[in-house]
Amino acid sequence: MIRFDKANVTYKGGVSAMKDLDLEIGDGEFVVIVGLSGAGKSTLIRAINGLVPLTSGGLNVNGHDVPNLNAKGRRELRSEVGMIFQGFNLVDRTTVLNNVLMGRLHQVPLWRTLIGKYPEEDIQIAAKALDRVEILDRAYVRATNLSGGQRQRVGIARALAQEPKIVLADEPVASLDPPTSHVVMKYLQQISRDLGITTIVNLHFLDLATAYADRIIGLRDGELVFDGPGSDADEQTFRDIYGRSLTADDTMAKQAAL
């Protein structure tokens, strides 16, 4: 369970990316956050694993009191929260398997990390994660030699290898073409359902949001402006979230048709 309590984030220079946010996300929910760029989507996601500290207010994630964690507590929290990135954030020069094993680091002793010799059971967990996104056969290929969609699947496998309770995905399909985007979204949805992992995804394509979300959260200028089931969100909802009329750029299908 994730609970924001009058949470605020103000960046240096005075930009306010989260304003008095009250929000509760239950276990196993599949939530999509929509909003224009700069609305505070990334801030919300990064607050959950402590990559962005709150300026004030409370945040509880699975019992962790996030604003008051020390370094060790923060690592513990992060080990329970997998993260997927827009730019994949893979180490290009190393193998797919090594990238996925990064998800096991919280379990692996330092000396083993230093010599690069991971325990067999961690390798098995990594392999299972790769198998789930159907890319196990590329385990010993260098990450550079994969296509964008394959790279994001490795990103998902890395998050899964943590055996997380929560998965955060920050614009996971923004660098992918439409068919590949659907593949990646389906994997995320399926993993959330099969393993009961709470999943929070930032998206800016409205059609993708309504197609996959159990629940949609709309942000505008750091404020919560919509919170409801995906089926409730229509064009008027999005016009309210965006504060303007919709254009072809806002939906993946229409943008692809351009």
């Binding site: 694993n49 954030n89 893979l90 290009d92 990064m102 680091l105 230093l114 990103g155």
Partner: peptide, 28 residues
């Protein structure tokens, strides 16, 4: 590339683990 560093931090790796897995392969 700072991306892998963020990924390692987000996975709960310690600082030295992050250097070994996200930084060293890049500069080796």
């Amino acid at each position: 590339d700072m991306g892998p560093i963020e990924a390692a931090k987000a996975s709960g790796a310690s600082h030295t683990q992050m250097l070994r897995t996200a930084v060293v392969p890049q500069i080796l």
